[in-house]
Design a protein around this nucleic acid. Structure first.
Lengths: 342, 342
DNA sequence: GTGAAAGCGCTAACAA
DNA sequence: TTGTTAGCGCTTTCAC
């Protein structure tokens, strides 16, 4: 283990007091240029680094940001969270923060994790993913005045009572639908999640809007189901069977889109488990997961690195600057990645 | 922010000294049963949690384990690291540790990250992934006496100079090859990475072994290439074009396997970008990524949750118990997930 | 079995 | 502009 260099060692070597070293590092403008240089040189030379634990005891700030790592659900959508986490870790490091991981299954388990973490490691803030209606996590944190941002808007309270960053899902499905319209498709279905989920309703809305813009209705053109491959396949089959005119499907996720592809391709490739010959139908997914890339699925891509850096920016702004300022929020545009499937 | 409950609050409420509270929590056997009960009741009641920063200052232990989060490479293989990280976080929490994330691009950047982290947050240990020949990270840590485990054996020094957990890749490809043999395939090719990578050579060896066991040679039956879809496709085409008798391919990764599938299926599904009609060939991948599941690719699965928990067990054993004990290591068996592709 | 004292490394407040 | 003092919450040491 490398021998620990403390602020006292630096002070001694530079011939100043410990406090001056601290000032040179944390409040440089208060130290004379020459002194500052000398101190920083010694810091460099000795390889001194401030000890977080000691600093935390004094300042009450840990420079730790806590984030949950999801169990991969179906493994397809899971990649979204992982890309986000990566972006968060990178941006955080640049701002002098580190990401602390935790797991939790459900809102209540997660608030319990908050409690644990705050008691022990005292993270300065939390970054939450996948906000939803009636999210108990945000109220728990807000009640206790713990700083946090969410990836996902404040669905329950659109008046934005907390910081959030989100991607405009409706704009994504709208772009997807317009793309299909421009390809000549006139009867375009939608595969989504049961009503009541903010994200799902938002994505359906974009599709509806794009059709409405060209005077098309949506009656009988959509199905709602659980977000997984097999349910997606069933829903797609049902939809296509009942309406022979449908030539394209917009899906709320790549999982659903993959299910749709199982029935939408003619002839279905035999090795695509459960594939049944059907008529050719264009399919667009959502999230641009590795699976979409692998199978040539057109998909709506979320700018996850940008979402992550924005989350961190809002957070540091709040942490380092005005804690009293009104919460900020940010809606980022997605992009459409066009591939062979549509 | 929840008001902080300190050990002094607990001591006061329980009518004992601070020290007794500390003992009741950390050295229960030294406190009288009755006192211990009373203290623990108050701890519960007040929601007291030891402050890590303060404890760390005293003990020098942070109960933090640092691990790298990878940028998703091609997005396919990336899922391995993410599943591993998840397992690590879950097991760590059960053992009273938390996972601290960092990113780094290359060995040298990673050792720089070690230096930063050790100076500032003082993680108790590191968990490294993807060890390789001449790994500068392990020597850096070993030289400084920093505890660590690796997911991936000590390739450079098989005498096991450090703790590691790995999956028996050769056993995986051997099982895959045997499976294909049992299906009647007699001429089975291999798609892998350039020689010299520990993992790649290991996986090729399993295939070779399985063929040797039934008296088959490997001359002209393998290709080495970069671990990505397009190179995999080219290599597969080359191999299949030159040897018309090959009816099955074992691949060192799902990325390569996906590339192979682009040429191995007849007729290639049109929406699989770049697909060219070819004769039908069975394909087996490695890692059982979400992509494998999505496209029905038979693949070798690594028990990542078990790898993660084993890593943590070796680590805590070393951390809490004998730091002087010889390094332990563990080779876990993979399993074959059979799907439509082979 | 329990309590008092000391100090880990740092920085806020104040004094020089 | 620089130095001194104090104390964050905890546990190790030693006295009782």
């Amino acid at each position: 283990m490398a021998d620990k260099v403390t602020i006292a060692d630096v002070a001694r070597a530079a011939g100043v007091s410990r406090q001056t070293v601290s000032n040179a590092l944390n409040t440089p403008e208060v130290v004379r240029e020459e002194t500052r240089r000398r101190v920083l040189d010694v810091v460099e030379e000795l390889g001194y680094r401030v000890n977080q634990a000691a600093r935390q005891m004094r300042t009450g700030r840990s420079r730790l940001i806590a984030a949950r790592i999801d169990p991969e659900q179906d493994g397809i959508n899971g990649s979204v969270g992982d890309r986000f986490l990566h972006g968060l870790t990178e941006t955080a490091a640049r701002e002098g923060y580190r990401v602390l991981l935790y797991t939790a299954d459900g809102d209540d388990a997660e608030t319990a994790a908050f409690d644990d973490l705050l008691g022990a490691y005292e993270p300065d803030a939390f970054v939450l993913m996948a906000t939803h209606h009636g999210d108990r996590r945000t109220t728990w944190l807000a009640e206790r005045g713990v700083p946090f941002v969410t990836f996902g808007r404040a669905w329950s309270d659109p008046a934005a009572p907390h910081c959030w960053v989100d991607v405009d899902g409706a704009a994504g499905t709208e772009a997807a639908t317009r793309h299909l319209l421009s390809q000549g498709h006139r009867r375009i279905g939608f595969l989504g999640w049961p009503k009541g989920s903010g994200v799902g309703d938002d994505r359906r809305e974009g599709w509806r809007r794009a059709l409405a813009e060209v005077g098309l209705g949506v009656a009988g053109l959509h199905r709602e189901t659980e977000d997984d491959v097999v349910p997606g396949e069933h829903a797609a089959r049902d939809l296509l069977d009942r309406d022979p005119e449908i030539t394209a499907l917009v899906c709320a996720s790549d999982s659903l889109a993959l299910g749709a592809l199982h029935v939408a391709r003619a002839p279905g490739p035999a090795w695509l488990a459960g594939g049944h010959p059907h008529r050719p139908v264009a399919v667009v997914g959502f999230d641009d997961t590795p699976v979409a890339r692998a199978i040539g699925l057109t998909s709506v891509r979320q700018p996850l690195a940008e979402v992550a850096s924005s989350c961190l920016r809002l957070l540091t702004h709040r942490l380092d600057g005005g804690a009293g300022a009104p919460p900020e929020y940010l809606l980022l545009p997605p992009s459409l990645v066009v591939r062979a499937s549509g």
